[in-house]
Design a protein around this nucleic acid. Structure first.
Lengths: 162, 162
DNA sequence: GGATATAGGACTAAAAAAGTCGCATTTCGG
DNA sequence: CCGAAATGCGACTTTTTTAGTCCTATATCC
């Protein structure tokens, strides 16, 4: 399986949990343990994932007995990118698209700029896609709109206006 | 660095090599050794990468002394997805989007369909993007066209026609 | 005060990616 | 024909990353 485009387990757990919490009409917060049991997720790991989501201000945590997690915003106001960054760190296609990079190909590299554009495109994608939109895919009749801008249905370039 | 969206070294090497070969006006094939030296890539690894590209019928190999590799098609007729698959195997967002999967969350999973759609979208992307289009990003004035279909510049859903 | 939570550091285990080695085969050129 | 230079490829090791475990501290409810 190709690792580019692959979700980490932590990312999966985060998406499952957020979806789960959103589906509760409950006022009571959902505990990591109850989510972990429901979806057969290792409880310790899920704890860490929820803590990461808390630090990223995606959920709020209530400590102590009867504690747990609540969403801080609706799924419509959460984008895939922030969830991925919260649990796995910054999103980069290649090290050279980050700030402090070093790469053996750096000097002669002939693909740096294209890679940067790819990075920008994918970053734009994950930071534009709300979890609500993503969740609506579930009934199978909806698709993510794909840009079909040229006749052959491929991606195209456009020139920047100056 | 987030691994979703991250290119493997092998994928980078493949893209560098294809770009390099395409830039030669030479009739003579380019050897793995000379590419490896030019871009500071471990020669053994590059050999494997080129062999994978050969098996995928993206390049043709010429054996023996003065041998090497030539493109079988122009960059315009090569898409990112086939290069990624050639060197890293099938592209999947999560195991459950493949044929033979097993996952501990399978029974209760609440994100399977959304993940499948995400998979389909990204797969469509990488299999629509030609290396030529990607390469044209290099002068910094061109961008990959991003679908801006709703006012807030986000991705949207559309309903399937039946 | 005890049960049940979150918070989080330190650690181990497992899996995947990256790189190395060795050898067979092909072909060019002297 | 022989040697140099190339691809082809299996087996292996190393390194890095991901995944998971363990332990302890702290907060809150009853």
């Amino acid at each position: 399986m190709l690792h580019m485009l692959k979700l980490s387990k932590k990312a999966e757990y985060a998406l499952i949990s957020l979806q789960h919490i959103a589906s509760l009409d409950d006022q009571a917060p959902a505990s990591a343990r109850e989510i972990a049991e429901h979806y057969n997720i290792p409880p310790d790991i899920l704890g860490k994932v929820m803590q990461a989501l808390t630090r990223a201000e995606i959920v709020e945590s209530i400590q102590g007995a009867k504690g747990g997690y609540r969403l801080r915003r609706s799924l419509a106001d959460m984008v895939l990118g922030e969830v991925l960054e919260a649990v796995d760190g910054p999103v980069h296609v290649a090290p050279c698209t980050g700030d402090h990079y070093s790469c053996d190909q750096e000097l002669a590299c002939n693909i740096k700029q294209p890679i940067s554009r790819l990075q920008a495109h994918l970053q734009n994608f994950v930071f534009s896609l709300s979890l609500e939109t993503l969740a609506q895919c579930k009934d199978g009749r909806f698709h993510l709109k794909v840009p079909t801008l040229s006749e052959d249905n491929g991606y195209v370039l456009f020139e920047e206006e100056e």
